Amino acid sequence: MAAAAAAGAGPEMVRGQVFDVGPRYTNLSYIGEGAYGMVCSAYDNVNKVRVAIKKISPFEHQTYCQRTLREIKILLRFRHENIIGINDIIRAPTIEQMKDVYIVQDLMETDLYKLLKTQHLSNDHICYFLYQILRGLKYIHSANVLHRDLKPSNLLLNTTCDLKICDFGLARVADPDHDHTGFLTEYVATRWYRAPEIMLNSKGYTKSIDIWSVGCILAEMLSNRPIFPGKHYLDQLNHILGILGSPSQEDLNCIINLKARNYLLSLPHKNKVPWNRLFPNADSKALDLLDKMLTFNPHKRIEVEQALAHPYLEQYYDPSDEPIAEAPFKFDMELDDLPKEKLKELIFEETARFQPGYRS
């Protein structure tokens, strides 16, 4: 834990890192770190609560700039109880001085990944967590956004079992017609939660990839272990087919990539493993919904509104309290091709509203 900075004593240090967030945020305490930044909790002297502050230093890398800009653009436009918001952003007053960006968010005690390492969940908890994931996802999908990296560590939890989806750095506007060349190379989302079509096709992607990830998360809540822990690309596919069985001819016809289709045709026939054999203690309604989410063919996979209306979630289902976005989200430009200098300018502009004396 960093010592509390005395008023006016300059930035606090946390594990050798400068955290320049005073005077409003003090009493910093280390939480963890990701690929390009550290997260601390801090005391907000204005709202009198502890908050989470993520320090991001992305400006050396085009990919990190892209992810940072995506996350900020999306989260500043989203407003939903099951999606983490941005409360404040701290950065230098000029673009030349801006080396880091500090993002202030609600402090959540833990995440689903940490929880599943230590606790076996009751059916009631599984049901409530799944409902909140789908409630947040309904809003995301209504904005025409794909999260693309749903996994237990991106689901934040607090002691009252509130759940918030975080990390929109890989999110995209849904565009089933656009052929994202190089899709697989830039697709760094965790393999275990990846839909089979991501490994088999490169053309376009749809909201059904997020539903697949939610199915993987439900299976993990039922058993405290990942359902498809593939060691590499082909191993991942083999794990999936080992449980779902061989795809039907109709399902194979959806695979545009001939090499991928021929690979699947070359494999020995596998039978589907019954879900109640894998999860003998699970609620039968939970397994019915799991089956509809972990469907090989993305066109037959359940959609988020149908999933919310499934009998497993009937005690929570309330369409009048499951809000959607006001308007579909649009990125003005494809960020993939922009140089990091341009992305830095866009991050600077996007964060201006939090600067003292800002006038829109």
Rank of each mutant, 00 (worst) to 15 (best):
S248D: 09
T118W: 08
N253R: 10
R353Y: 12
T26L: 04
R24F: 01
M98Q: 11
E71W: 08
D162V: 13
L234W: 04
Y317W: 01
E305H: 05
Y64R: 15
Y25M: 01
Y128F: 15
A327G: 02
R67G: 12
H239L: 14
F279P: 01
V304I: 13
F183W: 06
Q306M: 06
I72Y: 08
E12G: 14
P176A: 12
S246E: 07
L155E: 06
I211E: 05
K272Y: 08
G357Q: 13
V101G: 11
Y30H: 05
L237S: 07
L156N: 14
A7H: 11
Y193P: 03
S29W: 00
A282H: 01
T206Q: 09
I347M: 15
D149N: 11
L184W: 12
T160D: 04
S41G: 13
K48N: 15
L137H: 07
L241M: 15
F168H: 02
N154D: 00
D318Q: 01
D332L: 05
N47W: 13
T94W: 08
L200P: 00
Y113T: 04
E345D: 15
I198Y: 05
T118S: 14
T159L: 12
V18Y: 00
I211Y: 07
V46F: 14
P247H: 14
K55L: 13
G357C: 15
I31L: 15
F19W: 10
L116R: 04
E60P: 09
T63L: 13
Q315L: 14
L290D: 07
A219E: 13
M293N: 02
A282K: 04
K300W: 10
Y139M: 10
R191M: 07
G182I: 12
K231A: 04
I83D: 00
D210I: 08
Y263V: 06
E305W: 08
L69C: 09
G16D: 00
Y233F: 15
V18P: 01
C166P: 07
F296L: 15
I95L: 12
L289M: 13
K342Q: 13
S41N: 13
R148D: 05
I140M: 06
T295D: 05
F331G: 00
P23S: 09
V214H: 04
F19Y: 15
L115H: 01
Y205Q: 04
I95C: 09
T160K: 11
T159R: 06
P176L: 11
A325M: 00
Q66G: 08
I255H: 02
Q17W: 01
I324E: 04
Q249W: 07
P319Y: 10
L76A: 11
T295C: 07
K344Q: 02
R191G: 05
I302P: 11
E334W: 03
R50V: 12
T181P: 10
G215E: 12
Y263C: 02
Y36F: 14
T26W: 07
P152T: 13
A5L: 14
Y187W: 03
L157M: 11
Q236H: 13
Q66D: 10
D251N: 11
I165M: 05
P298N: 05
K207C: 13
K151Q: 14
E350A: 04
L75I: 07
P328I: 07
P229A: 06
Y358W: 06
A189V: 11
I126S: 11
A35P: 06
I90C: 12
A2E: 00
M108H: 00
I324F: 14
D88Y: 14
Q315A: 09
Y30C: 08
D291A: 10
N271Y: 13
R172S: 03
G242E: 06
N144T: 13
E250K: 09
G242R: 00
N253G: 07
C65E: 11
L278V: 06
N257T: 14
I74F: 15
D283Q: 08
T295E: 04
K138D: 05
F19C: 12
I56D: 14
A307G: 06
M221F: 11
E197P: 05
S284P: 00
M13K: 15
L290M: 11
V49I: 13
V214M: 10
D106A: 00
L278I: 05
P58S: 15
L134S: 09
A7Q: 13
H61D: 06
P229N: 01
R225K: 05
K292N: 14
F331K: 01
R148M: 10
D149T: 01
L116D: 04
T181D: 06
L289V: 01
F59C: 13
D179V: 15
T94H: 10
V173S: 07
R301F: 08
I324Y: 07
I90V: 12
Q105D: 14
